[in-house]
Nucleic acid binder design. Structure first.
Lengths: 105, 105
DNA sequence: CAAGTATATGTCCGATCCGACATAATCGCA
DNA sequence: TGCGATTATGTCGGATCGGACATATACTTG
């Protein structure tokens, strides 16, 4: 977001910041959300890298396209368990999962 | 287990091997279990390192001693979400969590 | 061994999660 | 723009999870 837009929003009474500020997350909660987002993005990367659609990938994992979309979106209804199991199911290694958690943005 | 006992059990119709063999886990399932065990052990390490009992630590996290015991035991009723949230709640970083997942035995 | 402390195990029930379906929104391309 | 393919969103019922309690087992110290 550019500075002008930020200024305009703030003049209009909005607070502009990151998700942690907006949702008033504690540091732990923020770290947990970041971790989930990192896994979700990696899941998308793996799928796209392998050249599959959400529907194909979901089927392969015994799930549905809609749930897989929520996984990639790190939806609140998706657990870290499901993300990790899905990644492993698509061939990612435990080492890769750990690396993503440790170092992804 | 020594070889004699192994032989005796196998003569009696038992298959003796590791958890993956015994429970007939797929490689992904085995990797997931390993990942959970790594987090559970790390959780214990962190708690002991900080010099707390399970009861104290559980209270700090808003949980109960019994559930915390199950966490440390990587019980089937404990999710990776709970393990990760608890670790972050005890002060572990996302980086540490990732490292443990990537590299723990 | 006894008593006190710490950890482990089993169960219950309210809360959350997940696959499925329906449908909306978005993308890719002629 | 229009149409088929893909992705996103909302909801529901059954399945799993998690805090709590009771109680058992294991450790520690006298």
């Amino acid at each position: 977001m550019d500075q002008n837009k930020k200024d305009r929003l703030e003049r209009a009474g909005w607070r502009v910041g990151n998700a942690e500020d907006f949702l008033e997350l504690t540091p732990e909660e923020a770290a947990f959300v970041e971790l989930k987002l990192a896994l979700a993005h990696f899941l998308r990367d793996v799928r796209v890298q392998q050249g599959w659609t959400q529907a194909q990938t979901a089927k392969r994992l015994g799930s549905s396209q809609s749930r897989f979309a929520k996984m990639e979106a790190a939806d609140a209804s998706v657990s870290v368990d499901l993300l990790v199991k899905s990644l492993l199911g698509l061939g990612a290694t435990r080492e890769q999962v750990g690396e993503v958690i440790a170092r992804a943005a």
